[in-house]
Nucleic acid binder design. Structure first.
Lengths: 250, 250
DNA sequence: CGGAGTTTTGACTGGAATCAACTGCGGTGG
DNA sequence: CCACCGCAGTTGATTCCAGTCAAAACTCCG
């Protein structure tokens, strides 16, 4: 994806290792056969010995944790191209299940480590991936910590809309393959609140249903305004700093 | 921008660089002079150009995001030994302020990248750090998504108690240098709810105050039971998997 | 057509937020 | 030394948003 350095590189050192030098993380997985998961099937469970790292090549996966009395928290939905299983622990600290039919490829942690050590080009890619994941986790903390039910649902619709269109721009339609329960467990709400909130958005003409698991975004501007990210500092530059200091003086 | 081409040569020509090989991340920072921050002083702000990575050598820092209308979410407290500023973005996506007087060292992102590329020993350390951070973020999502006010406060007390004693075992006393407002913004509660919850814990004899910003843990077992992590799957192994499948069948 | 699972809708409850008053403490200066 | 101020924290009264409990409606199947 980035970097054209490998051309120069391979000219000097193709023989340094027996393994072929990789230039993208995708290539690492591309030689492995794909495995299929049915809807609802688990890829691994919280507590399993963590021996593999997976790349999703098709479908949607949910990642979740469960605490004592059965409360479930979905910490993320993963789409084609995402990786899962990255961790230094020797057991997985969360579970992964298929939301839709899923195809994945797996490599062992050892092979993954070796590939990284052998390819300087892979490392920044992994670093970038982990940073993105961290940023997403922080956005989710903001959502769970301070956003209203309506803001949460709107944020979610926008997130999935972006995901579906390659993170570039927001499309006019959103597919929501997951159940209302999944959404609730991701947004820190109940299934009833999610349902009511969606109904309200439909009634107000912000979105319009297209079956139960798809919506058209009728008023993208309105949706954006309702998601609670305000005049988001994300692209406001210097001015943002001023404002922020005014709001939180010390 | 993040060309890594030069490292390709280093396999053949380790002398190509003047820099000494480092074996721990600490060493990378150890040559740089320390900077001091007063209480409440900012290290950097959300939106600033991200040019440095910092290591905290003393004190406590708060990391937070602010959304439009002034809502603040503290995504973490950092202690001596922690690093901050890791990101691939060219601007910081959160702000960092001193909770107590703080001493930090900084290195440029470029130096940081170079050191990583030159030292195979550093990379797993960074990877481990990022994985831990990710795991902490997920635990925080669980807290914010599904825990009651009391569970949140108890979890927080246990977290800080662990932090203070080098992550090994929980001490009998907890120092809370941050204000109630900071705690509230970290736990997704209001200042009043934090205060009331602490009062209740004191009344019930679970903890006992030691000034306003320190507590003794009178009943560690009780505190652990109240934190909401239940018969935590974290150390339950195989049995946990069974139970989980029973609770969340498909 | 029927039945099970999912989603929606309705009535009511409750836990944390909000609004407001008060307390305690540390610093400052008369 | 202590009266005063300002701030952080506590406590109390009330509100409200989302949760809970319950039932109906819709879908997807066989």
């Amino acid at each position: 994806m980035l970097s054209t350095a490998h051309t120069a590189h391979s000219a000097f050192a193709p023989m340094a290792t027996m393994k072929p030098q990789l230039t993208t993380l995708d290539e690492l997985f591309s030689t492995v056969p794909r495995e299929s998961l049915d809807i609802g099937e688990g890829l691994f469970w919280q507590g399993d010995r963590a021996q593999h790292i997976f790349e999703i090549s098709e479908g949607v996966l949910r990642i979740f944790k469960i605490i004592g009395d059965g409360r479930r928290v979905i910490t993320g939905f993963l789409y084609a191209g995402d990786m899962v299983g990255l961790s230094l622990k020797d057991v997985y600290i969360y579970s992964a299940e298929a939301v839709t039919p899923v195809k994945v490829r797996r490599v062992t942690k050892k092979n993954f480590r070796d590939a990284l050590e052998n390819s300087p080009e892979l490392r920044p890619q992994l670093f970038a991936l982990m940073c993105d994941e961290m940023a997403a986790a922080q956005d989710q903390m903001v959502l769970l910590s301070r956003k209203s039910a309506e803001e949460r649902v709107c944020s979610f619709l926008l997130l999935i809309a972006k995901r579906m269109h390659g993170d570039q721009q927001i499309g006019r339609s959103v597919q929501l393959p997951m159940s209302r329960q999944d959404m609730a467990d991701y947004l820190g709400l109940t299934i009833e609140t999610v349902s009511r909130t969606i109904t309200k958005l439909v009634t107000r003409g912000v979105i319009s249903p297209n079956g139960r698991h798809a919506f058209d975004i009728a008023k993208p501007g309105k949706l954006l305004a309702l998601c609670g990210d305000g005049d988001s500092y994300e692209d406001a530059g210097e001015r943002a700093v001023k404002t922020r200091q005014a709001v939180w003086p010390h």
